[in-house]
């Protein structure tokens, strides 16, 4: 796993080693209507499952958070990871320090906040939980599994 890097104009944190997609993401509607895009942007009201038949061609999915209070994007992210999507999953928009860890657990591996985040506070936020109570889209082992020697 790569160390997160800071300081780009757009993507502030990225936990991937591969080359980022260099073209703009299209809307879900546009994606479903054309066959060759490899980057798509999901809005809160979009059904992430609509992408699944063509998931293999995607290398970047952006999930937009117009407001950090709208949590639909967390479910969208998990649904894509549960379906086996391994490409970049980028949280875009009103992305704040105190949501970083939850987003990460739901499968996001890059972050493009509207406002740049304090790097030190962000590093602390990514590491806030020494343990987790439940499995999610990350590889973390839940407490119940550790208790029972799994």
């Amino acid at each position: 796993m790569a160390e997160p890097f800071s300081g780009t104009d757009t993507v502030q944190f990225r936990f991937r080693d591969d080359e980022a997609v260099d073209h703009a993401a299209v809307t879900v509607d546009a994606f479903l209507g054309q066959s060759n895009a490899s980057a798509v942007r999901i809005e809160p009201g979009d059904d992430a499952r609509a992408l699944l038949p063509q998931i293999g061609q995607l290398r970047l999915v952006e999930v937009n958070f117009p407001s950090f209070m709208d949590g639909r994007g967390y479910s969208s992210a998990r649904i894509l990871r549960e379906a086996g999507y391994t490409g970049e999953l980028r949280a875009v928009g009103d992305v704040l320090i105190d949501q970083l860890n939850d987003l990460r657990r739901c499968g996001f591996d890059s972050f493009q906040p509207d406002q740049p985040l304090d790097a030190e506070d962000a590093a602390r936020a990514f590491a806030v939980w020494p343990e987790v109570y439940q499995p999610a889209a990350d590889a973390r082992i839940p407490i119940w599994a550790k208790r029972h020697g799994h």
Partner: peptide, 12 residues
């Protein structure tokens, strides 16, 4: 325990 800090369900 399941619902504590459940990452998907903190912005319902």
């Amino acid at each position: 325990q399941w619902s504590s800090f459940h990452p998907e369900f903190l912005a319902l």
